[in-house]
């Protein structure tokens, strides 16, 4: 199967490249029509529940999938750092691993995989453009997601401008933590629609669970919403419902009030998905303590809590779905 061709250099931003996690075609759930989603690697936030933990770090990472491994030991032979330890449950000795990714090239099953490929705008375009006819018939396009696309603002802007030149609809999914001025001048002109995450209103809790202050995020939201009313891209606030963290009545009321204050009448709520901790394990990361129980039980998000969130928002005149 055609995979990425890894290159010698890595990390975000070098040589006008960005670290791309995945380019996922044929998505029907990330905006209207048939879309290709470009997942960027690296995020300024550090949300404990992050559904894509592999997208947080701005560096390429090595992932190991024990289920796919057939124990052929090819990796043992090619690893120059002796970082492979088939005896240990984590398989890779992360302290020794130099992230040279020689093992991922030779691994026949893909059990060892490189997470994050540096790509240029043209590389990304080449992967997207064959699907353009599907965007045209379905009214779809490209979604920039992550990670956080604005962390590679310049790259995102160049990519979005090329897409617009091709007549392709662009959608940005963002956490909102960016420099407003740069955003307004570089990326925003080439974006047709924005899905903007609103997570936690309480500043302290936001710092605790998301690893950063939320003031910029909220003020940026107000500004982007305002620009949207003056001919800028459409904005849809999205609220991830994380049990006990974001979906508390208190937080939902605060978000409702915030949106009401800005005259924002529409929002999307995203139900929590319990499968993400699997991904942590593959990267050699620990499952955050808050989620250990859920990880074991794999409880799906209850419908009643979803309805409750929608109900609270509607109390503020915000229609959510």
């Amino acid at each position: 199967m055609a995979g990425y061709t890894p290159k010698a250099h890595e990390d975000t931003g070098t040589l006008g490249e960005a670290l791309i996690l995945e380019i996922k075609p044929n998505s029907l759930d990330d905006g209207r029509g048939i879309r290709t989603v470009v997942f960027f690697k690296g995020c300024p936030l550090d949300c404990v529940w992050c559904h894509n933990p592999e997208s947080k770090s701005t560096r390429a990472e090595l992932s190991y999938d024990a289920k796919a491994c057939i124990g052929c030991n090819t990796c043992l032979e090619v690893c120059p750092a002796q970082a492979i330890d088939p005896g240990s449950p984590s398989f890779v000795d992360r302290a020794r691993c130099t992230l040279c990714f020689a093992c991922t090239v030779e691994c026949p099953t893909g059990a060892l995989e490189r997470v994050g490929i540096p790509m240029g705008v043209e590389d990304v375009l080449a992967r997207i453009l064959p699907d353009k006819p599907f965007f045209v018939t379905s009214g779809g396009g490209v979604t920039l997601s992550g990670g956080e696309p604005t962390l590679a603002m310049d790259f995102s802007a160049r990519l979005a401008s090329r897409l617009k030149a091709e007549g392709i609809h662009t959608l940005l999914e963002t956490c909102g933590l960016f420099d407003l001025k740069t955003f307004t001048h570089t990326l925003m002109p080439f974006v047709d629609e924005i899905f903007y995450d609103i997570k936690i209103m309480d500043a302290g809790l936001h710092r605790r669970f998301c690893g950063a202050d939320n003031r910029t995020i909220l003020s940026n939201f107000a500004a982007v919403l305002n620009m949207s009313r003056n001919g800028g891209p459409g904005v849809l606030p999205r609220i991830p419902l994380v049990p006990g963290i974001t979906d508390t009545d208190e937080n939902m009321n605060a978000i409702g009030k915030f949106l009401e204050g800005l005259g924002c009448r529409r929002a999307a709520v995203l139900a929590y998905n319990p499968l993400w901790p699997e991904k942590c394990l593959k990267l050699g990361l620990k499952v955050p303590f808050e989620f250990e129980k859920e990880h074991k039980e794999r409880t799906w998000y209850p419908r009643q809590r979803l309805s409750r969130a929608i109900e609270i928002l509607s109390g503020y005149g915000v229609e959510a779905g």
């Binding site: 199967m1 055609a2 057939i70 052929c72 090819t74 026949p108 099953t109 893909g110 064959p130």
Partner: peptide
Amino acid sequence: DPALYAMVTRKVPLFGSGS
């Protein structure tokens, strides 16, 4: 030869893969 099986099914561009 499970390694070869993995290689055959994963590392070769097949019809329908966009190759």
